[in-house]
Nucleic acid binder design. Structure first.
Length: 441
RNA sequence: GGAGAGGUGACCGAGCGGUCGAAGGUGCACGAUUGGAAAUCGUGUGUGCCUGAAAGGGUACCAAGGGUUCGAAUCCCUUCCUCUCCGCCA
């Protein structure tokens, strides 16, 4: 969420910055300026009225409750009271409209990032390693995995439907090995604290990180007390209490400090967590329907950081490096892309995608996305810090990145480490986590 | 799922419907005292919004929302959360 005051005072700058994302982002500002003016008008009148009311009420306290003056003043106060109730209702209405509008406005892209409309305009920052020189025609991970008996898409579909899969034997073991390997690296080498959070969260948490209200369609939702949108019979007035399956560990990790004022000396705070992630993938029909690339449920190790504003951009470089280190140690070839303004995620100011090479697809595919959010999430979630006692609290900057998506890492290993006979070598770094297994065949 | 008890400031804990942003204590900060510390004494110590150059002033917030009232932390309703006991269960 943007700072309302900043938006109102720098309307042209904000409009221009949002315009870099595209027309829709610019349009999202909509009636905000007009609403803000109405709000300050209403608040002004309300304050004046309240002052009058408070003064009069204080006088009432001292009067004889039986006296005529008390009765007379009570009558006139009644009118002021009614009027202020009306104004309060109006204030609430404007405030709600304003917040609703503001929650839909994307973050301002950082000035230095490339211009562009789509992924085609993203800028390659660097590459690591080279494409493996295969002396045969590389297979896709689906064909390799099914033939090896470690991936089972048919039974995944039987259990749950399209975009679900089953890992078996060395496949399941590889998933677990990757999780352990990544967590060990980030906690022991990179200084992150390991967290094991809930996978179901409330709507307030999703609002904090920005998935709600704008992207509800991408989430799996559960309403435990309700069935088919109907309240339980014995509690007709019960509000709709809802929980959502997390789309990423970013949500619980960032919201750990929602509504908190942190002490400056605790910064930076660095968390990592393995969680399953759930995405409805609405609107992606026909995309990546084969294989593990786009699933409704997948595993991921996430990195989340809380930083002082002045260290945030350096922290993004560091965090990206931490995600890259996973790929380096696994010996996987990849490239780093800086996203252009038009391809940037809703809440982020600057973002690097790590794209791993998939020989079977003859393409680079996103395996990690590392973002700097500025104070966008912190303002929504009210995450602040105080440098030292007596200072004014200020918003932290939040960052996060995949470190990495485990399923896609497994895909990359299958495809980059495949051999002519269809077997797959286990990257050296993972062998200890695989009980010494060196080749899957 | 059944029965009960609660949710007040960093924490503990008071609070007859008006003088309560809220007693008291702890913690913390600063000052005094000390060779230094402990102890002691003094002062200060929430957040948002509006306003002001600043000092300050105004206003809202006592889980959340609604209601009663001229006036609500205090009364009523709803919801959420926490704790204890029982049952069920990984």
């Amino acid at each position: 969420m943007l700072d309302l005051r900043y938006v109102v005072e720098h309307l042209d700058d904000v409009r221009a910055a949002l315009g870099r994302r595209g027309e829709a982002a610019k349009q999202s500002l909509g009636p905000i300026a007009a609403l803000a003016e109405r709000r300050s008008n209403v608040m002004g009148r309300l304050q004046a009225l309240r002052e009058e009311k408070n003064e009069a009420n204080a006088a009432m306290a001292k009067l004889d409750k039986q006296g005529d003056e008390f009765k007379a003043r009570r009558e006139s106060l009644k009118r002021i009271s009614d009027e202020s109730k009306q104004l309060e209702a109006e204030e609430r209405e404007v405030q709600t409209a304003l917040e609703t509008a503001l929650l839909l406005v994307p973050n301002l892209p950082a000035p230095g990032i490339p211009d562009g409309q789509s992924a085609d305009d993203n800028r390659e920052v660097r590459q690591h390693g080279v494409k493996p020189a295969l002396s045969f025609k590389p297979k896709e991970h689906v064909d390799l995995g099914v033939a090896l008996g470690i991936l089972d898409f048919d039974r995944g579909a039987k259990l749950s439907g399209a975009r679900f899969s089953v890992l078996k034997g060395a496949g399941a073991q590889l998933e677990r090995a990757l999780m352990m390997f990544m967590l060990d690296l980030h906690t022991r080498q990179h200084g992150y604290t390991e967290i094991w959070p809930p996978a179901l969260v409330n709507d307030e948490s999703l609002r904090g990180t920005g998935q709600l209200p704008k992207f509800a369609g991408d989430l799996f939702r559960i309403a435990p007390d309700w069935q088919d949108g109907i309240a339980p019979a014995d509690k007709p007035d019960a509000p709709r209490r809802e929980l959502y399956l997390i789309p990423t560990a970013e949500v619980p990790l960032t919201n750990l400090h929602r509504d908190e004022i942190l002490e400056g000396e605790t910064l930076p705070i660095k968390y990592t967590a393995y969680t399953p992630c759930f995405r409805s993938e609405a609107g992606s029909y026909g995309k990546d329907t084969r294989g593990l690339i786009r699933q409704h449920q997948f595993d991921k190790v996430e990195l989340v950081r809380f930083e002082r504003a002045e260290h945030a951009e350096a922290a993004l470089e560091e965090l990206t490096g931490h995600a890259e280190e996973v790929l380096k140690r696994l010996g996987l070839h990849y490239r780093v892309m800086e996203l252009c303004a038009g391809d940037l995620g809703n809440g982020s100011k600057r973002c690097y995608d790590l794209e791993v090479w998939l020989p079977g697809q003859d393409a680079y595919r996103e395996i990690s996305s590392c973002s700097w959010f500025g104070d966008f999430q912190a303002r929504r979630a009210r995450i602040r810090y105080r440098e030292k006692q007596g200072d004014k609290p200020q918003l932290v900057h939040t960052l996060n990145g995949s470190g990495l998506a485990i399923g896609r890492t497994l895909v990359a290993i299958l495809e980059q480490y495949q051999q002519a006979d269809g077997s797959v070598c286990v990257p050296t770094a993972l062998v200890p986590y695989m009980g010494g297994l060196e080749v899957i065949q």
